[in-house]
Design a protein around this nucleic acid. Structure first.
Lengths: 357, 357
DNA sequence: TCCCGAAGTTCGATTTAAATG
DNA sequence: GCATTTAAATCGAACTTCGGG
């Protein structure tokens, strides 16, 4: 009754033990190459390994995790998987995780607070070893942050500056990127430039605008307040394109002429492009457009969008490396302070910008 | 020594037991509302629940899974997360999974066989309860399928017809969709239609072409072989756009005139649009274009792409429902035969098609 | 003491069988 | 027999300790 053949399809360490004629502990020691395995003769090892393979033995990960408290899994929470921005960062994350044999649980919060909290709860229950939060397009406020820190597990936020926080972060240099974007337009001869800024509530909106202002100061470029508009504060991604469309149309209506338009991001640029095209204004011949992000569809557009690329791949990789460091530190009971990494953006010149002729 | 206060931050069922003055088993029964809880007086229940909450008790999921062999997790393998097609299906999957409180482990195979197999192995080791495979753009052959079936866990493939297989599948009605696409062009007066077909190795290429042929027969539309070209057999997604671009240029070079172009999918349509634009041909005024999929960037294009929409959301939901059925059947040792669901596609008329004038 | 291997405990929760009044 | 509660076995692997040659 005790020596019953394994009735279910799963083969346990005891099956291997019985089949090989050794004790379960020996099998464990051999298969894990534990320190004690040093004393076990090669013949025994070979026999055990052979029967293990023969039986198709795979250690039960639950039992393993129960003891070790580790599961080689990290949680990834993002706020809209439909956003191509997320997609590219996910790719970067995945690559790094794969190398370390970590798997990830993916949660899509749909930009909803409740969903975010529910997912956070679920991942904590599952005791993921760390958390990656993709805070694109999100109005991350104190509460969410508090939730995160309540979890007490290593966490890295991507896409949102959190200098003050105890939670690590990885961001782009929004200010520098915006600076180089205006600089590009300026170098093409553009002086009357319209700006569609991002929602005020987003920190990246402010940072990008600072970049613009800094360039304006540096080069004595005149920023006409009439040519500066803001995207409304909302969180629907696709509506963002529509808003940009609407706002650009209004900009056009008031007859304030401009020869170039700098959009908050690529999505905004798409909306603007549509508005300009509808108004019969040719891009780039009559008006240049530049975006920000270099999101997937940007290079597919006709004309292809000139933009400022966020190094999404590198951001994902960087976040993972910080996270895994945090995890191993936590495992060894060392404490580490939060790390805030800011990566440079890169100007990508394509077809929507052209020198003034 | 045995009654030591829990030294770590984690609070176990025994902590709750000690604190409430009952045995661990009683606590378990109450908290899980097990059958035996019927006999337990409300006062006891209340006391236990209160202390559990007070202590912030969360059952250890590893221990739970160790016994129950369930973990409320499914694996999702896709072949290129960069593909917007995947993205929308993921959203559909996520929605349904969320409702059932399932979490998903996401794996991106990068269109590489080795990666696919490694991930499959990892998920099997983790004993995910089921598997969802997003077989877009993949040259799924017998081997991969065999791998999948070797796993012996419920599996649903999305985007690939597998009528013969023991593995369930969810697909679109490619043939019907293509039929309605040509029908749309035909109804606008187009008779000289060019076709950029998909790679021969993909079953959806064949199915879509069958739809075209069927319409041609039904309406006595002449299909000029000179206007039919194929995308090469390769698996790089972005190269697909470039290939389409190149192929359309060749089509143009040979001076065979056409008034409309039907692309294998949206990505192909983007490539074609670029080629036509470069050649100075106005879309849709001089040439209409229709795609397939209704992938995310399609509605952002200027002009917005007319296409045939795959009901990605519904496909994801459908796959999840089949999968969860499979999982509960497996849990109860019932056997179910594979289910093959085919969902209708929907014509979405936007700006790249126009009646011949 | 060295070598080889086994027995037993632990992780945390569930569930059975059994013990109280 | 009934209501109420619990000790003990179990899940599978890892690790510590122990014993025989």
């Amino acid at each position: 009754m005790k020596k019953q053949k394994s009735r279910k399809g799963t083969v346990t360490i005891r099956d291997v033990a019985r089949e090989s004629g050794f004790a379960a502990s020996t099998v464990s020691i051999v298969l894990n190459n534990a320190p004690l395995a040093r004393y076990i003769p090669p013949t025994t090892k070979a026999r055990i390994q052979k029967t293990a393979k023969g039986l198709g033995y795979h250690p039960n990960i639950f039992a393993k995790s129960l003891r070790s408290k580790r599961n080689h899994t990290v949680g990834v929470i993002l706020f809209d998987i439909t956003d191509p921005y997320c997609t590219l960062i996910l790719r970067g994350i995945e690559k790094s995780l794969y190398q370390e044999s970590y798997l990830s649980i993916l949660c899509d919060a749909h930009n909803e607070r409740a969903r975010f909290e529910r997912y956070l709860e679920m991942m904590l229950e599952r005791r993921v070893e760390g958390l990656l939060v993709l805070a694109n397009w999100l109005y991350l406020d104190i509460n969410v942050l508090a939730d995160l820190e309540r979890g007490k597990i290593p966490t890295v936020i991507i896409g949102r500056e959190l200098e003050s926080s105890a939670t690590s972060s990885v961001t782009v240099d929004d200010e520098g990127g915006a600076y180089s974007a205006v600089a590009h337009l300026y170098s093409l001869g553009h002086r009357k430039i319209a700006f569609v800024r991002g929602p005020k509530a987003l920190s990246s909106s402010k940072a990008r605008w600072r970049g613009v202002q800094r360039f304006a100061r540096d080069s004595r470029l005149d920023l006409d307040p009439k040519l500066v508009v803001d995207l409304p504060d909302q969180i629907n991604l696709n509506a963002g394109v529509d808003d940009a469309f609407r706002i650009t149309e209004e900009l056009l209506k008031q007859k304030k002429s401009f020869t170039a338009l700098m959009a908050y991001d690529d999505m905004t640029a798409f909306g603007a492009l549509r508005a300009l095209t509808k108004a019969g204004i040719k891009v780039p011949q009559e008006c240049s457009i530049i975006g920000f992000d270099d999101v997937n569809p940007s290079h597919l557009m006709v004309p292809a969008l000139t933009t400022v690329r966020q190094p999404m791949d590198a951001m994902g990789a960087s976040a993972v490396s910080i996270l895994l460091d945090g995890i191993s530190s936590a495992a060894e009971n060392r404490t580490v302070s939060a790390i805030h990494r800011k990566l440079p953006a890169e100007l990508v010149i394509r077809e929507t910008t052209q020198s003034i002729s």
